[in-house]
Design a protein around this nucleic acid. Structure first.
Lengths: 343, 343
DNA sequence: GCCCGCTCTGAGAGCGCTCTCTGAACTCGG
DNA sequence: CCGAGTTCAGAGAGCGCTCTCAGAGCGGGC
C-alpha cells in the first residue's frame, strides 16, 4: 500500500510548497522566470531539480491551447516513400526547423483508408498545433480529413485544383525552372527541344510541362513525350520521341530519373550527348544526376529549404491566428540550373 | 470582431445543453454510451453531429492519464534506417497492432544528440502512454532518456548488457535459429561449418555467433570470420576464411547480405554451391534471399510479428500498471528455416 | 399498497496548469 | 517622513473533461 512506489509525479503545487512560494510563482519560473527575483528563481529551480518535476503537458495544453507539436501526415499507403531521397530531405528540413521553433515533429502515416478516421480524431483532438502534408491529389480523402479537422495546414507541393485554392502550400518554381532549362537548350543552339513529361495527375509534372511550353511558344505536340517519373518510362518516352522526331536535338526531362532513362536510349541509338542531343533533368538528386554518363545538367530545387519553409509558413499561420490577417500567399522557392556535361 | 469566425470548438457542455441532458450523460454517450437509455443516446449523438463536437484530448488526458498514443523512438541519427526493409516491416507490424488497440503511432526520431532533451521532455511530459525503441547500444544515451522519462518502454532487439536487464524487449530466437541453421549444415554432411559473424556490438550478431558455437561444441576459431552485416564484409570474411581453412564446406552467415557476399566470392573461386560449400543466411529478407544465385537457404524471423508483439507487451505493461505484477519476461519469437537451393 | 432494490441521471469535485487581478513591499522624490 | 509609483508574489478562477456519489424514478415482491 506504499503510495510512493507508484509513479505519482510531482505537481507544480509540490514544487511550490517545497520552494516556499505560490503555485503562480513556481509556474513563472518554470516558464522562463521573467518577473521573479533571483533568489526565488533559484529556490524554485532547486525544488524542481530535487523533485524531478516535469510539467504535465496535458494540463498546460488545456489552458494554453497549444502543445508544441506539429504533425507530418504521410498519405502514401506504401511505406516506400521513406526511401525516397526527396522526401527524406524534406522531412529533414522540417525537423530542423521545428526544433528551432521548439516544436516536436509527430509523424503520422495513413496506411489504409480506414486510418482516416483515426487520423482525423487525432488531428481534430488537439494533439498537435498544425499539420504538414504532401502533394495531395484530387481523390485524396486526406484533404477532406485535414479540412474537417480545422487544423492549420501547410502542403508540400501545389495541390491539384480539386483540393481547393485555400490551402497554403510550399512548392518550388517548377514552371520557372522548366523555362530556364529550355532556355539553356535553346541558347546552346538546339532547334527541336522536346519534353519528357511526368504523370498528368501531379502538379509538379504539369507545371514543368507548362514551363516548357511557355518557353518555346507553341511547340510541336510531337515533341512531347509522356512518362511517370521512372527511368523506364523516360527511356520509353525517349524512344517514341526519336521515332516521331528524329531531328530532336534537345531534351528536357521532367525529372532526373526520366533523364537517366533517356540518356540510356540515346546511347543505345548511337547518339552523342550533348553533341547530338543535349539533355537537362529536374530535381538534382545527387545519387542520380552526378552518376549518369555524362553527368546530368539539371534544375536543382532546395528540398530541405522547402521543408523549412513549410514550417515557417505554418508557424506564421499559428501566430496570426488571432488577427484576421489573410492567408499568406503560397511560397514558391526558386530553382537553380546546375550545369554538368549533358547540356 | 465576429467571435464566430474563430474556431471556438464546442465543448461537452454545449452538447449536453443542446441534447437537454447533463454533461455527465453526454460524456457517457461519447465514451460508448453504456448505461444510458437509447432515446437519450440518440439525442446526444445528434447533438454531437450537429455541433461537430470533437472531444478535447488534453482535457481527457488530464483526467484519465492516458492519451492513446505510443511513441516509436528512432535512435538512428541517419534517416537511412527508413530504407531498411527490416525496420519497415517492423514498424508496419507496430502500426497495425496499435491501430487495433485504438492507439496512435507517434514517430519521434533523434537526429542529433541535442535532440535528447527535447525528446525527453516530450516523452516525460505525458504526450504518450509508452514508447518503443530499437536495439539500443551501451553508449546510447537514449536508454538513459527513456529511463529518466519513467515511461513504459519496450525494446526491439535484446539490448546490450550495459542497458540493464530490466527493460522488456522483443527479439527473435537468434541463438536457436543459428543452431538450427548449423544443424542443417551438419545434417547434410558438412564437416567444417564456418560462421561469418556480424558486428560484435550488436546482440543479434553476438547471439547468432553463440548459437553457431553451441551447435558445434567447440569449433575451431579459424572457422569464425567477422563482418558488419554488409555484403562487402561478407565477401571479405569469406575470402579470409577460404585462405585459413580451404576445407570449409558449410557456411552460416550472420545475415542474408553477408551470405550474398560470401556466395559471390565462392563463385569467383570456382566453388559450387551447395555441392562444394553449402550456405545458410539469416533474416530472410525477400529482396535478397530470393534473388541470390543460387537462392539462399536462410533463417526467417517474423519481423512484422515482432513489431506486433512489442505493442502487445507494451499494452500489457500499461494495464498492469496498477497491480504490482512483475515485469513480463522478454518475448522471444521463434524462427523458421526456409530451405532454398544454397543448402 | 408499501417498501426494497435496481437502473439511470445529474451535481459537483477535481485533474495540473496558466494567467489575470489584487495587494504587499519597496523605492524614491518632495 | 509621507505619498505616489513600481515591482513582484499570491489568490483564485477557470481550461474541458471524467467519474464518483447521491438521489430520482420505477418495478416487483410480499
Amino acid at each position: 500500500m506504499a503510495e510512493q512506489t507508484t509513479g505519482a509525479r510531482p505537481t507544480l503545487e509540490a514544487v511550490a510548497a517545497r520552494a516556499g512560494v505560490s503555485r503562480a510563482t513556481a509556474s513563472r519560473v518554470v516558464n522562463g522566470g521573467a518577473g521573479v527575483r533571483a533568489p526565488l528563481v533559484d529556490k524554485v529551480r532547486q525544488a524542481v531539480e530535487e523533485l524531478g518535476y516535469v510539467p504535465n503537458l496535458a494540463a498546460r495544453t488545456l489552458v494554453t491551447r497549444r502543445n508544441g507539436a506539429v504533425a507530418v501526415v504521410i498519405a502514401e499507403p506504401e511505406f516506400r516513400i521513406f526511401s525516397d531521397p526527396f522526401f527524406q530531405e524534406q522531412v529533414r528540413g522540417i525537423s530542423r526547423e521545428l526544433t528551432s521553433h521548439d516544436s516536436q515533429l509527430v509523424l503520422l502515416w495513413v496506411e489504409s483508408p480506414g486510418d482516416h478516421d483515426r487520423i482525423a480524431r487525432y488531428l481534430g483532438g488537439g494533439h498537435v498545433d498544425g499539420a504538414l502534408a504532401f502533394s495531395l491529389h484530387d481523390e485524396d480523402e486526406l484533404a477532406a480529413v485535414l479540412r474537417r479537422a480545422k487544423i492549420p495546414t501547410v502542403l508540400g507541393g501545389r495541390p491539384t485544383d480539386g483540393i481547393g485554392p485555400d490551402m497554403p502550400y510550399v512548392d518550388c518554381d517548377n514552371r520557372g525552372g522548366a523555362r530556364e532549362a529550355v532556355r539553356l537548350l535553346v541558347d546552346r543552339g538546339c532547334r527541336a527541344v522536346a519534353h519528357l513529361a511526368g504523370p498528368r495527375d501531379q502538379t509538379s509534372a504539369v507545371d514543368r510541362a507548362d514551363g516548357w511550353r511557355e518557353a518555346l511558344g507553341d511547340p510541336d505536340p510531337a515533341l512531347l513525350g509522356h512518362g511517370d517519373f521512372t527511368a523506364e518510362s523516360g527511356a520509353r518516352a525517349m524512344a517514341g520521341l526519336l521515332d516521331r522526331r528524329p531531328d530532336v536535338d534537345g531534351v528536357f526531362a521532367a525529372n532526373d530519373l526520366m533523364a537517366s532513362g533517356a540518356l540510356r536510349v540515346l546511347r543505345e541509338r548511337g547518339l552523342r550527348v550533348p553533341e547530338d542531343v543535349a539533355v537537362v533533368g529536374f530535381d538534382d538528386v545527387a545519387s542520380i544526376a552526378e552518376r549518369t554518363d555524362p553527368p546530368l545538367t539539371t534544375v536543382r530545387q532546395d528540398i530541405e529549404g522547402m521543408g523549412r519553409l513549410m514550417v515557417r509558413l505554418l508557424m506564421h499561420l499559428l501566430h496570426e491566428h488571432g488577427s484576421g490577417a489573410p492567408a499568406p500567399d503560397p511560397l514558391i522557392t526558386p530553382t537553380t540550373l546546375v550545369r554538368r556535361a549533358s547540356a
